[in-house]
Amino acid sequence: MKILVCVKQVPDMESKFKIDSSSKWYDQSDLVYKINEYDEYAAEEAVRLKEKVSGSELTVLSIGPERVKDAIRKVLAMGADKGIHILDNEEHLKDPFQKASAIAEYAKSENFDIIFTGLQSQDRGSAQLAPLLAGMLNYSFVSTVVAFENKEGYVEVARELEGGLRAKVKVKLPAVVACQLGLNTPRYPTLPNIMKAKRKELKTVNIEELLKVEPLIETEKVYFPERKAGGIVLEGKADEMADELIKILKEKTQVVK
């Protein structure tokens, strides 16, 4: 099987964020980057599939500046065979339609049987890339996958629906599979595998070679949402804050008397 997994590098969501000077995105300096959480599940599932089906080859792809090579190397250390880095220093200014078409442009001649992605990124969070990519490649598509099993010539997955309901679904190949959190337990790469990953093929392609479309949406501005009107913020000593909170709860709710 030829397998592709697409991963995005995003800031640690616990970081202190600032808006950048253009007011159109967050300031990318002074942030710690890591693999998008959803994509870790996608990477793990891709590695498991590769290990299960002998003769498979797993490629890991990421778009972004030089730093995204760290994300690619991590997935190589998890077990991917080779990496593709689509170099784009202005990745954050591209919309999902553009990124999907760049990946489609790369993937169309590669004939992947299955492409794994995360359901969404933690930063942009639009959940668009995978379905757009599937549409462009004319692949089957299934999202919010929480269980995955490879069968003869097709895959069987569970989709997570709302309110604790799941749907069992049969998916024809080739397919794009968008993975939900909790699909598996992503492995930590071992030290020998980290060392081995350094010798694996990692090819860089410039975004200009693959991107041929204009964006479909335009970001006008980014800003911090407002705090709840009338919300109270308590700061200081834990002991005093607890007294204050109990006083407020007695006044405002009927549950503390």
Binding site: P96, F97, G125, P131, L132, L216
Partner: peptide, 23 residues
């Protein structure tokens, strides 16, 4: 913006080549 929307909406957008806007 639901499990159904995630699956369907952006495929329709890809087909029609119109702007997709999430959530």
């Amino acid at each position: 913006h639901s499990s159904y929307g995630w699956d369907m909406a952006f495929r329709v957008a890809a087909d029609l080549k119109v702007a997709p806007i999430s959530e």
